[in-house]
Amino acid sequence: MEGEGLEVVEVSMKVNGKPVKAKVPARMLLVHFLRDVLGLTGTHVGCDTSNCGACTVIMNGKAVKSCTVFAFMADGAEILTIEGLAQNGKLHPIQEAFWENHGLQCGFCTPGMIMTLYDFLNRNPEPTEEEVRRAIEGNLCRCTGYVNIVRSALAAAEKMRAVGRWVKGGA
């Protein structure tokens, strides 16, 4: 037991395959840890009520809103952010699909959208349009009307089926 409790905690985790370790305030949110401590600014903050999903990252294989996780809760976890999705300069099929189908406009919600779909498409490789819409109900977009995001997701699913890349967890 840590006596009176800790105001500063040491956390170590794997982020995009790389081990990282840092001492951070207990109150630091995971999203601030990623952005401000690690400089991974691809993960965005879009609200303060856990609604918008712009901060979505993959934690231990599952999409989470990193604004609603304290950094210390991710101690020992494997984190995948948008920066870690492309491998050796090759875009992930979801990224490709967003590009080809004009699945983004201002781009602010996009990393969160992509990470949510990463989790979802790993679990459901053959989704219907309705299922895709349900999967991203926690990711708000103000530009696209979701039409091309849904299209991108369905196209990504097809690409992922073709290359057999819907293995859970990791990149």
């Binding site: 037991m1 840590e2 009176e4 409790g5 800790l6 105001e7 905690v9 305030p25 207990a26 109150r27 949110l29 303060d48 304290f70 210390f72 101690d75």
Partner: peptide
């Protein structure tokens, strides 16, 4: 937004909690 400061305990067992 930014939470206020607190002290955290991370118990490793139910008894400890």
């Amino acid at each position: 937004m930014y939470p206020a400061s607190f002290k955290v305990f991370v118990p490793k067992s139910l008894d400890e909690a």
